[in-house]
């Protein structure tokens, strides 16, 4: 009786995942593996080997890799500070870091465009102060900057979560056994926070790899990431077959990072939010 009721409750989610996850996924595979006349082909997928596509994939991998590394380097100390704050303002501090996420992603990125432009807010101020201006907009640096800005909370939160869960007595035990602060960090804190790090890396790397908005707005149309290429195939060129084929290639990279997460984060410890 109870079992049936529980099953009934899950129905909306079943329909949801069929309608919005499974069917679209199947359609991507259908388009990606067929040509315009409906014949089965691998040419769309293999199209990634074309220099122009391959280059955009490599750039996307490179930029998202660099952003992920910088995010990690920025986030770890930040998460440690947040996890060790004992005052009552802890909640507020975390809120401040999460707050930008409540604003529209497009708006935030547009705001950075306005700030970073050659004649933008930052350069106007710099010029006023007779300082050298920044020539950063429409360069890979601006894209990396945008990625870091947008995805940093996704790195901070899972690391913060695992750090909070580490029993303080474990750290005391390490000190008790003769480990100084640095040894305690590398032998206890860091290994125990690996699930959070892996989860954070995935949560930054995957959206960074697939983004086309950040590269569009901050990179001009000069730097094409694989996300941009796919977007253009769907919108400008109306070539759904090629777009889907390239999406399948991208999916492989995402699946690889998902599997890595699953291996390191068996207990779901690092899952954020």
């Amino acid at each position: 009786m109870k079992n049936k009721f529980v099953k009934l409750l899950s129905l909306p989610y079943v329909f949801w995942s069929i309608g919005f996850i499974i069917i679209p996924l199947l359609m991507v595979f259908y388009y990606g593996l067929t040509d315009k006349s409906g014949r089965l082909t691998l040419s769309n997928v293999l199209n990634i080997a074309l220099p122009v596509h391959f280059k955009s994939l490599i750039i996307a991998l490179l930029l998202s890799f660099v952003s992920t590394v910088i995010c990690l380097l920025l986030s770890y100390p930040l998460a440690m500070i947040l996890a060790n704050v004992k005052s009552k303002s802890k909640g507020l501090m975390i809120l401040i870091f999460v707050l930008p996420m409540w604003m529209n992603f497009l708006l935030r990125t547009l705001a950075w465009q306005t700030l970073l432009e050659n004649e933008g807010v930052i350069n106007t101020v710099l010029q006023f102060l007779h300082l050298p201006v920044l020539k950063i907009i429409n360069t890979p640096y601006a894209i990396i900057f945008g990625m870091i800005y947008n995805f940093l909370p996704f790195m901070v939160l899972p690391i913060y979560n695992v750090l909070c869960k580490i029993d303080n007595n474990l750290l005391n035990a390490a000190r008790d056994l003769g480990a100084n602060e640095i040894q305690t960090f590398f032998k206890v804190t860091l290994p125990l926070s690996v699930p959070g790090i892996i989860s954070g890396i995935t949560m930054v790397f995957v959206p960074a790899l697939t983004t086309f908005v950040i590269s569009d707005l901050l990179g001009g149309s000069k730097i094409l990431l694989i996300g941009n290429v796919i977007e253009q195939e769907f919108t400008l060129n109306s070539n759904w077959h090629l777009g889907s084929g390239l999406s399948i290639v991208l999916m492989i990279f995402i699946i690889i990072s998902m599997i890595t997460t699953a291996i390191f984060d068996k207990d779901g410890e690092g899952s954020a939010l």
Partner: peptide
């Protein structure tokens, strides 16, 4: 003197074994 320099060792209430 910090804990790590003291010639004594502690057995903690909840064991505090390193799970990794």
């Amino acid at each position: 003197l910090p804990a790590y320099k003291r010639q004594l060792n502690t057995v903690f209430q909840k064991y505090a074994l390193f799970t990794h």
